[in-house]
Design a protein around this nucleic acid. Structure first.
Length: 369
RNA sequence: CCAUAACAGAGGUUC
């Protein structure tokens, strides 16, 4: 039956869920490992509701879950985001009377935070006797995601105090918290820690650092991190361009865009909006048109994000015909597309047209913000 | 030991 169990998880990896089920149903006496393998299959293929259902079937036929089963099923609850289901299975866990280990408790923490119950996540977290890097990182990331940045930063130092070694994920999460808090001194301190073990050249961490320094106005530091990066990808290029743009170094932003292009790295929606913003600030009509051509080449003209940046750029440089024709070509107009077009009219001095669009926007069911 | 926990980093208009 070890072979059958392996078969189940193998089918799961291939996405052949029906075959996985068939194997289990053909087994004379499926064990807890068989059931758990099947649940894991469904979770991996994002059929989380079904996974929970299978867990219940398993209980019904009298097979007792073990720790691994709970890991899988808490994962499913986390993906569904159903707090009531999660609590119910938490009760099952307690009733099962299993010896809790750090992995089970961490998956509980994660489940509660994914279900938006930071309080319950903390209750579990605070009760834990042993917390490893995954536990701490999970808690830090969750706090940052919920905007509890000070808490995330405090947790990081607490973790240091307990001599748990942070990893790449830990660092990116806590740096993100520093970014949102505009906490330059903490960010710099963490940067120093990173330089001690060479992780400051890691692309993910480096990108987070660039953004942190950019948001804190420390252009010099951002550039130095960028130039020390082990390698570059689209995200790190874009982060650096964003830093330049936000600190009003628009020429440098466009310069970097050209460099990226020369290195053969293709821009995406986010990159385009950033460089278009830079063009708008510089009133660089020609440069903007050039970028517009690239956007058309990639077929991204009617994307709402890109279109609003294009309309904004054309509006600011005074090219209203272009702005208008783009505006008319966008099918999914969100509030930002409308705002970009309306403020284009206003800055041109055409208040009447601006007002007309404002009313038309409401008529089309778009709420102004 | 046949199944085994966090999966992070760049985002547009106006303010």
């Amino acid at each position: 039956e070890h072979l059958s169990n392996l078969l189940i998880s193998m089918f799961g990896r291939c996405g052949a869920l029906l075959d996985a089920c068939a194997v289990l149903y053909r087994m004379p006496t499926p064990t807890v490992v068989s059931w758990t393998s099947l649940i894991t299959c469904f979770v991996k293929n994002r059929h989380d509701m079904r996974a929970v259902q299978i867990f219940k079937d398993m209980l019904k036929v009298g097979v007792d879950p073990n720790g691994v089963t709970f890991l899988a099923v808490f994962n499913a609850c986390a993906n569904i985001g159903s707090l009531s289901e999660g609590r119910l299975i938490h009760v099952c866990l307690i009733e099962a009377g299993l010896q809790l280990d750090v992995a089970i408790e961490t998956s509980l923490v994660n489940m509660y935070s994914q279900c938006n119950s930071l309080e319950e996540a903390f209750v579990v977290f605070n009760k834990m006797h042993l917390r490893n890097v995954v536990t701490w990182t999970s808690m830090i990331a969750v706090c940052a995601r919920h905007g509890h940045n000070e808490e995330a930063i405090l947790l990081f130092w607490h973790m240091q105090a307990e001599s748990v070694e942070p990893n790449e994920l830990t660092f990116t999460s806590v740096i993100t918290a520093c970014t949102s808090e505009h906490d330059f001194s903490c960010g710099r301190l963490i940067h120093i820690l990173l330089m001690l073990n060479g992780l400051d050249m890691d692309i993910g961490i480096g990108t987070a650092l660039i953004t942190m320094y950019g948001k804190c106005g420390a252009m010099h530091d951002a550039v130095s991190v960028f130039s020390n990066l082990r390698s570059c990808n689209l995200i790190s290029w874009t982060a650096m361009m964003t830093a330049y743009k936000e600190l009003e170094q628009h020429e440098d932003c466009l310069q970097l865009y050209k460099q990226m292009h020369m290195k053969g790295c293709n821009p995406d929606i986010i990159t385009f909006t950033i460089v278009l913003n830079a063009c708008a600030s510089l009133l660089a009509h020609f440069e903007g048109m050039h970028i517009h051509m690239s956007i058309a080449y990639f077929g991204l003209e009617t994307d709402a994000l890109v279109a609003s940046a294009l309309i904004d750029m054309y509006g600011k440089v005074g090219a209203f015909l272009e702005a208008y024709s783009l505006f008319n070509a966008v099918h999914q107009r969100d509030a930002v597309v409308w705002s970009a077009m309306i403020s284009g009219c206003i800055s041109k001095g055409d208040r009447r047209e601006g007002l007309r669009l404002f009313h038309q926007m409401q008529k089309e069911g778009m709420e102004p913000d």
